[in-house]
Design a protein around this nucleic acid. Structure first.
Length: 748
DNA sequence: AGCACGCCGACT
DNA sequence: GTCGGCGTGCTC
């Protein structure tokens, strides 16, 4: 039967799909999962064919203009999965599908055979400033182009850059001629370093063997199961993942391996390549074309192992045997733009829909996963010992208040940490230092009037970067030269407060003049340092002290690192978020685990003003269970996850009064709607609550005021009801954006 | 989202 | 008298 009509899912914030007539000429060509070009209003859009209805739901449907794909771009599995996402996360099916397909494939079919042109900043800042002023003040376009490129991280596809900055090709060419930019065809995947330690393959110990059993049993049975693999750092989780993947491959199925963006290290890629030969890697730093190529190879069954971040959960692998989510507790699995999905939860759903096994691995499982395991929704397996029989590092906590009092001054590196570092360096061992703050000074203040320099668009303090002599907003990339005098009272000097990686680098350089120090954070990368090169040099022993942010905390495995220092453990702890203790504990445990992975014992020194906090205390004693006990109690008392569900509704706009009014109106509608819940539905008063509206912790971001409402419910039913109410009431006035976030991970 | 239609204020 | 603000509704 020839289809007369198609149902099309468009990437619009509109819940419904649209029906079109199929012209005779296309009746044979259209397929479910392929895309079509269709008219909508006065535009033409591409959307996914999701069905062939017998009769249209509109009076006189328009004609499909053309077929975009000769064959389905997504299979029935991804269609089903995205439909579930749309329902659960309250987006349209089209938006979910849009997120599930890499950009390089979406636009033009194979037309973009050639790599796109990419523009990169290629000058030091002062040089660039000089060149720009020579070009003259009458060319705001050039300035705007450079500013936009800087915001995009110093490197961007030329086409996108021109569109965003509104500048023309000629402006870009002129800047390239003057050396401000380099414009070249993107080269694809970054090269891998020469030397990296590949852990040798160990025989599984008895604990690992029994952990593997429920995983492999389910894989062989082809049955859905989610396994929470809880293993202390260094307990050999990776080896279990690898054996599970091997098992899947033996059965002729495929595997998806998700890692947090930050942990997609060359080291991990190398382990996989080493073990499985060809592996599809979907890396955000790869060009669109390269990612599209890998995706196609997966769809055609040429690659059976996919390694990637969040979005790799949509890899068109069929049949699927196992999905591994490594570091499942990581917040980066949650997308912070529509559709706001959590890749770990999507992974579990996908495994369920496709009869696959999901393995969620972590040394510090999220409370959500832990509770699911306790309730029997997941199978929990526990690895209590380090595979290499190396002891867990000895963790020492330094009370910064005490240290400051005793030394009569505040010092970034306590005497304890310094002596541990000296011992290690003396033995030819290596050191990792961790600090979760980039830049030099975290804020500038005036000693006379107390003025603190803030971002005009975000109202958070500007961070001083000494290397560039500029202050930066870490949220919106606003930048300005660091003021000499106080802008408020004109006092001639500003005081540099707070400590970032740049400042620690300087202090460590002074204390250890003979050591080779490298810094690894997004600033050093932006300035052209290759993380692969730094890690390669560190692995080869050419660098003695590696200092950095998150990037040094995750997934690094170097056997000669014996000392790890946490410069300041309180950054995460002081965030206004109910998960701050959990984040702190996870981070400290993870960082501590970088020490003593080889045969020599490790030491971790944690510097903090909160030495008695249970997150710090539990990290010191490597006691996950103690942490969970305390944290569960706190969450239960307040009805926070995992004991309740949250819906966060964020309102933002340039006119604060309007934003507040919109949020208040919505809260009122929620209150009356939920209070009157019909009897079959869950009663709301019990345990549920509508919090706010209140200003979000980041109350002003990029010039937009932000207020939010938090709906706390006992289960999905309640927050779902709240989301239904929002959809049924009139939309907020123009100029106010309302974004619902189901299961929010960050409340900032 | 993007675009129309539609109804009230200061300006060529 | 119009140009244009954005509030409201619709797009197959």
């Amino acid at each position: 039967v020839r289809p007369l009509y198609v149902e099309v899912a468009l990437n619009l914030p509109v819940k419904t799909c649209f029906h079109y007539r199929v012209p005779e000429s296309l009746a044979e060509t259209l397929v479910v999962g392929g895309r079509v070009r269709v008219p909508l209003g006065r535009r033409t859009l591409a959307g996914f064919v999701v069905g062939f209805p017998e009769r249209p739901d509109a009076g006189s449907p328009k004609d499909v203009l053309e077929a975009v794909d000769p064959e389905p771009l997504v299979g029935p599995e991804i269609l089903r999965l995205t439909r579930w996402m749309a329902e659960y996360y309250r987006c349209s099916w089209g938006e979910a599908l849009h997120a599930a397909v890499p950009a390089g494939l979406r636009r033009g079919k194979g037309r973009s055979k050639r790599e796109p042109m990419v523009a990169r900043l290629s000058m030091e800042r002062d040089e660039e400033e000089g060149e720009l002023s020579r070009i003259g003040r009458r060319s705001p376009r050039a300035r705007r182009l450079v500013a936009v490129l800087r915001e995009m991280g110093g490197e961007a596809e030329l086409a996108r850059l021109l569109k965003r900055s509104g500048a023309g090709r000629s402006t870009a060419k002129m800047l390239a001629r003057r050396g401000v930019l380099r414009i070249e065809r993107s080269t694809g995947a970054p090269g891998l370093p020469v030397q990296l330690e590949i852990p040798v393959r160990h025989r599984l110990n008895p604990e690992q063997t029994s952990a593997l059993r429920p995983i492999c049993d389910a894989i062989r049975a082809g049955a859905y199961r989610t396994v929470l693999l809880h293993g202390v750092t260094g307990s050999g989780k990776t080896e279990i993942y690898l054996v599970a993947v091997e098992e899947v491959l033996r059965l002729g199925k495929g595997a998806i391996f998700l890692v947090p963006e930050i942990a997609l290290t060359p080291q991990m890629i190398e382990i996989f390549r080493n073990r499985f030969g060809r592996v599809a890697v979907l890396h955000s730093r790869m060009s669109e074309g390269e990612r599209a190529r890998q995706w196609k190879a997966v769809r055609e069954g040429r690659l059976r192992v996919v390694l990637g971040p969040r979005s790799a959960i949509f890899a068109p692998m069929r049949p699927l045997g196992v999905i591994v989510v490594d570091e499942e507790h990581e917040g980066t699995f949650k997308q912070q733009t529509t559709p706001r999905y959590h890749a770990r939860d999507v992974a579990v759903m996908r495994a369920r829909l496709e009869g696959a096994v999901a393995v969620l691995g972590s040394a510090t499982p999220s409370l959500e996963s832990y509770r699911n395991a306790l309730e029997g929704k997941y199978t929990r397996v526990y690895l209590s010992r380090r595979a290499t029989r190396a002891a867990l590092p000895k963790v020492e906590v330094v009370d910064l208040a005490e240290e400051t009092a005793e030394q009569k001054r505040f010092s970034l590196i306590s005497r304890r940490l310094e002596s541990r570092m000296r011992e290690a360096l003396g033995r030819g061992e290596q050191v990792i230092l961790f600090l979760n703050r980039r830049g030099f000074a975290t804020f500038l203040t005036c000693r006379r009037c107390g003025f603190v320099l803030r971002c005009p668009r975000c109202d958070i303090s500007l961070v001083y970067h000494k290397g560039e002599g500029l202050v930066f907003c870490h949220y919106c990339f606003y930048q300005a030269p660091a003021p000499e005098a106080c802008p408020d009272c004109l006092w001639p000097r500003m005081a540099y407060m707070g400590y970032g990686t740049e400042r620690v680098e300087e202090a460590v350089g002074k204390a250890f003049p003979e050591a080779v120090i490298a810094r690894l954070d997004s600033d050093s990368i932006r300035r052209g340092e290759k993380p692969e090169a730094i890690l390669g040099a560190f692995g080869a022993g050419k660098i003695h002290i590696l200092l950095g942010t998150q990037m040094v905390a995750k997934g690094l495995d170097f056997s000669s690192v014996t000392v790890v220092g946490v410069i300041y453990a309180d950054t995460a702890l002081n965030l206004p978020d109910f998960r701050s203790a959990e984040r702190t504990f996870q981070l400290l445990s993870q960082v501590a685990g970088r020490a003593g992975r080889g045969t020599r014992p490790g030491h971790t020194v944690i510097q903090t003003f909160n030495p008695r906090h249970y997150a710090v205390e539990a990290a010191r004693t490597h006691d996950y269970f103690r942490f969970v006990r305390e944290e569960m109690r706190a969450r239960q008392a307040l009805g926070y996850p995992p004991f309740g569900r949250l819906l966060r509704i964020l309102f933002s706009g340039r006119d604060e009064a309007k934003v507040i009014r919109a949020a208040e109106a919505a809260a009122e509608q929620l209150r009356s709607g939920l209070g009157a819940a019909p009897s079959p539905g869950p009663r709301f008063e019990k345990g549920g609550a509508i919090l706010g509206p209140a200003p979000a912790p980041l109350a002003l971001l990029e010039g937009r005021y932000r207020w939010h409402i938090i709906v706390k419910g006992q289960g999905v039913g309640e927050i779902g009801k709240a989301a239904d109410i929002l959809e049924s009431v009139p939309r907020p006035p123009a100029g106010v954006k309302r974004v619902p976030d189901i299961d929010p991970v960050s409340m900032l």
